[in-house]
Every structure is written in structure tokens, then in C-alpha cells.
């Protein structure tokens, strides 16, 4: 093919429009660098190997959940049940593991691998129900996953009945709280999930469909893309990621109990949005999510290092999210302006 692959016409666009087109990707990255520089200057304990490992460990669970959520948001849907599904998967895992006599729940101890399989299957089953509700019945994902949030919490509550279960299979304990040399296993697992998430999104047919369905659902349908199957697929992927995060989280926290994942819903959504994936679908990716996860992680950790008032911290995180939303919507508007240029 003789036509040039890069487009010289783009060079004729005004600079501010060209940069504007990259606003979605640039802004989070610049923010991340600025935060790192800022905290390094303000606190000598921030930029140390130990603390970097700390931050990575702290963001790993969020990152795993955010991978699934990236697929969902790219498809112009939302999943509010991620934390609740993670919680249910963690509790399921503990439910199928032998607990101490002091834990008074009528659980069913099974071999470790089987328990892990059942916990993942449980998360996938919840994802399948969500997928069915959203595609087959036609319930908007916002409402459907709100119901699933409650259902996940309900299943968890029924299984642990207000108690705390400490035991999970050894493999999960190792992956969730162990290290290989200086590197925590949970960071490696998160990195693997991010990598696989990125590869599937970028190099597979399904990944392309996710972008196309999110970019213009009607056009995808007219092209013969099985839109419902793609939407169902992303809801299942989200549930799978939540399931993995839920199992590792139980080992990371050292126990399984109700509501222990509640903060992760907002964290994961914030990470995806702060990273610059479009709330309107079709734009963004795992790379954005990685940056988003790190921005939130660095901010959280850095504010502690400079001894920020922990109550003010909540407000600051809210403001950062608001700023990301403004950029997100503004980037969308710039994009439609650019489209008019040619």
C-alpha cells in the first residue's frame, strides 16, 4: 500500500488543537510527574525504594478492579458492583476454606484450588446476571449494577453473618501478602492483569469491538457487530477482575468480612476517569488507567508523608476527581471541534 501511514494533514492543524487532542492523555501524565516532584521535595521519606514498593502495593487491588472497569467504561457503560462483587468473591473463598473453631459459620471446607475456582465462578455468575440484565432485559447498567451491588453485599453478609474469617488457601495468602525478593507478589499479579488487559484491548478483535461499540453503538450494530455480546463480555470481564481482586484482597487484609472493599468502588472509577478514559466511551485504554491508578496512589501516599490533615485529605481527593471530570468533558468537546477541522 503506497499511501503514507502517518497523516501530514494533521500537521497543518493549529498547535493548541493538536495538543488539545492529546489533552486526555497528557493531563494525567503531567499531573503524575508534578505530584511525584512535589512530594519528593516536600518529604525526604517519599522518594525511597521502600515507599515506592509501598505505593505499588497499596494500588494493586484498585488497579486490578480498574482493568475490568476500563473495559466497561470504554463501552460507554458503568459497573457500580465491582467492590461488592470483589467482597462476595473474597467471602466465598473464606467460606470454602477451613476456619478456626472460633469462627462460627456453617462453612464448607474444600481443597484450596477448588475454593479458588468456586470463588471466581461465583464472581463470574454475578457478572453473568449483570450481563443478562443489561443486554437481554435492557436495564441500564447504572441501575442494574446498583442492584448487583446490593446483591453482592447480601450474599457476603449471608455467608459470614457478621463474623470475620481469617483463613484462605495458602496460594492466595502467598499471592496476596507474600513477596518474591523485594517485590510483593500482589504487585506482580496486578502488573500481569494490567498487561493481559492491555493486550486483549489492543491486539484482539474483541478489543477493537469494545472501542467501536463505545464510540458509536448504532454504527457498530449496522456493521453487523454483535453489540449485545460485546457488552455482556465487558460486564463479565469486570466481574472476573473483581473476583481476582476480591480473593487477593482477603489475603492482603488478612481477613474476610463484610464491607471491607467499599472504598474500592470510588477508587477504581476515579482511577479510570483520572487516567483520561472517556466517560462517553470509545477513547482511552489500560495505559490511561495505569497513570490514573498511580496519580491516586501517589496522592494518597504523598499526602500522608507531608502529614496532611487526614480529614482535609478526603476533600482534596474529591477536588482532584472533579478536576479530572472537567478535563474529561473538555477533552471530549475539543475532539468534536477537531473533527470539524478537516
Amino acid at each position: 500500500m503506497s499511501a503514507p501511514l502517518t497523516d501530514p494533514a494533521a500537521l497543518r492543524e493549529p498547535l493548541w488543537l493538536r495538543l488539545g487532542g492529546q489533552l486526555r492523555n497528557l493531563a494525567p501524565f503531567v499531573t503524575l510527574i508534578a505530584l511525584v516532584v512535589l512530594f519528593s521535595l516536600l518529604s525526604p521519606s517519599f522518594a525511597t525504594v521502600g515507599n515506592v514498593s509501598n505505593i505499588l502495593q497499596q494500588v494493586s487491588i484498585t488497579a486490578i478492579i480498574a482493568v475490568g472497569l476500563t473495559y466497561v467504561i470504554l463501552c460507554a457503560e458503568i459497573d457500580l458492583s465491582v467492590a461488592s462483587v470483589a467482597n462476595a468473591a473474597g467471602i466465598l473463598l473464606a467460606f470454602f476454606t477451613l476456619q478456626d473453631a472460633s469462627v462460627n459459620i456453617a462453612n464448607i471446607p474444600l481443597p484450596g484450588p477448588l475454593a479458588m475456582l468456586l470463588a471466581l465462578a461465583g464472581a463470574l455468575a454475578l457478572g453473568a446476571v449483570t450481563a443478562f440484565g443489561v443486554t437481554w432485559i435492557g436495564i441500564p447498567s447504572f441501575i442494574m449494577t446498583l442492584a448487583m451491588l446490593q446483591i453482592g453485599n447480601g450474599i457476603g453478609a449471608l455467608l459470614v453473618r457478621g463474623q470475620i474469617a481469617y483463613n484462605v488457601p495458602d496460594l492466595v495468602v502467598a499471592l496476596g501478602s507474600g513477596s518474591i525478593g523485594p517485590v510483593p507478589w500482589i504487585v506482580l499479579v496486578a502488573a500481569l492483569v494490567l498487561l493481559v488487559g492491555h493486550l486483549v484491548l489492543t491486539y484482539t478483535r474483541f478489543g477493537r469491538y469494545v472501542y467501536m461499540v463505545g464510540g458509536n453503538r448504532e454504527a457498530a450494530e449496522h456493521s453487523g457487530v454483535a453489540v449485545k455480546a460485546v457488552v455482556a463480555g465487558v460486564m463479565m470481564i469486570s466481574a472476573l477482575c473483581s473476583g481476582i481482586a476480591g480473593m487477593l484482597g482477603v489475603a492482603y487484609f488478612g481477613s474476610a468480612q463484610q464491607n471491607q472493599f467499599d472504598n474500592y468502588l470510588l477508587d477504581a472509577i476515579s482511577a479510570v476517569v483520572v487516567g483520561g478514559t472517556s466517560l462517553f466511551g470509545g477513547q482511552g485504554g489500560i495505559g490511561n488507567t495505569i497513570v490514573g491508578v498511580l496519580v491516586l496512589g501517589v496522592l494518597n501516599n504523598g499526602l500522608d508523608h507531608i502529614r496532611m490533615d487526614s480529614f482535609l485529605k478526603i476533600l482534596i481527593r474529591g477536588l482532584v476527581l472533579l478536576m479530572a471530570l472537567v478535563i474529561n468533558v473538555y477533552a471530549q468537546r475539543l475532539r468534536s471541534m477537531r473533527r470539524g477541522v478537516g
Binding site: Y203, T204, R205, G207, R208, Y209, Y211, M212, G215, N216, A219, A220, H222, S223, G224, V225, G282, Q283, R335, R339
Partner: peptide
């Protein structure tokens, strides 16, 4: 019909991706 921000080639290939390769792009 079209995915406005996407390049021309993706707008054309969208309906034949499964014939090119069932799994990969």
C-alpha cells in the same frame, strides 16, 4: 454508520475482522 474519530481503515475493516482472523487484529 461511521465511527467519526476512528481512521478510515478501521471504518472499512470493522465488518470483516472475523474473516481476517477470528481472534487477533
Amino acid at each position: 454508520m461511521l465511527f467519526a474519530p476512528q481512521p478510515v481503515y478501521r471504518n472499512i475493516s470493522i465488518s470483516i475482522l472475523e474473516r481476517i482472523n477470528r481472534l487477533l487484529l
